[in-house]
Simulated assay, not measured.
Amino acid sequence: MESNTTVQMDDVDRRILAELTRDGRMSVSVVAENVHISRAHAYARISRLTSTGVLTKFTALVDPVKAGLKSSAYVTLKVSQHVWRELREELRAIPEVAHIALVGGDFDVILLVRAEDNQGLRRVIFDTLQSMPGVLDTQTFLIFEDLDTR
C-alpha cells in the first residue's frame, strides 16, 4: 500500500489504536475486552491495521533520564537544497538522534537529540551535525523538562 494512502477506519479501529497506544504490550484478549468486541474480531482488526501500515511498530517508551540520557535538545537544521534523501540516512545512523522530522518554516529539519551528558550533546551537534555536507546552519534548544502526554 502507498505510504500516503489514507486507510478507512471506524470507531472500533480508533478505540483499538487508543488501547495499543496506551499500552503496546496489551494482549489481543485485553484489547478485545476493553473495546467490547470478540478476540477474533480484535485480532483481525489489528492484523488489518498492521498490514495497511496504520500500525507501524510496537515499542516501549523509555524515561531518558532514568536510562542515563541526561542531556536532551531539539536541534534545527537548515540544509542545502536536494540533500534531504542522503542526509536523512546519515541522521538515522546517529545513535543519539531519537526523532527526525522534515518541516516547513525557518528551518528544514528538526531533531530530538538525547545524550548521556552535555559533552556528548556537544559532540553530536558540533562534531557530527555541523560537519555534515549540506548542513548550512544549526540551532539548539535545550530541554529542561520532558513531559509524556500519553
Rank of each mutant, 00 (worst) to 15 (best):
R25Y: 10
M26S: 10
M26Y: 13
M26C: 09
M26F: 10
M26V: 13
S27F: 09
S27T: 15
S27R: 12
S27W: 06
S27A: 12
V28W: 05
V28P: 03
S29V: 13
S29N: 10
S29L: 14
V30E: 10
V30M: 08
V30A: 14
V30F: 06
V30S: 11
V30I: 13
V30H: 09
V30C: 04
V31A: 02
V31W: 00
V31D: 01
V31Q: 01
A32M: 00
A32E: 03
A32F: 03
E33Q: 12
E33V: 05
N34V: 01
N34M: 01
N34K: 09
V35P: 08
V35I: 11
H36F: 04
H36N: 11
H36D: 08
H36G: 04
H36I: 00
H36L: 02
S38G: 09
S38M: 02
S38C: 03
S38P: 01
R39C: 07
R39W: 04
A40G: 08
A40C: 08
A40V: 11
A40I: 12
H41L: 13
A42Q: 09
A42R: 07
Y43F: 11
Y43K: 13
A44C: 04
I46C: 07
I46R: 14
I46L: 09
S47I: 08
R48N: 03
R48A: 10
T50G: 01
T50L: 06
S51Y: 03
S51H: 05
T52A: 03
T52G: 00
G53V: 02
G53H: 02
G53T: 00
V54Y: 00
L55K: 00
L55Q: 05
T56G: 06
T56D: 04
K57D: 03
K57Y: 05
K57L: 01
K57G: 03
A60L: 11
A60Q: 08
A60G: 09
L61H: 10
V62T: 14
V62F: 14
D63P: 14
D63K: 15
D63V: 08
P64S: 12
P64K: 14
P64Y: 12
V65A: 15
V65I: 15
V65D: 14
K66P: 11
K66T: 13
A67R: 14
G68N: 09
G68F: 14
G68R: 12
L69C: 15
K70E: 11
K70I: 05
K70W: 12
S71G: 03
S71P: 06
A73C: 04
Y74W: 07
Y74T: 02
T76K: 07
T76P: 00
T76V: 13
L77W: 06
K78W: 03
S80V: 02
Q81F: 13
Q81K: 09
Q81W: 08
Q81V: 10
H82T: 11
V83D: 00
V83M: 01
W84P: 00
R85C: 04
R85W: 03
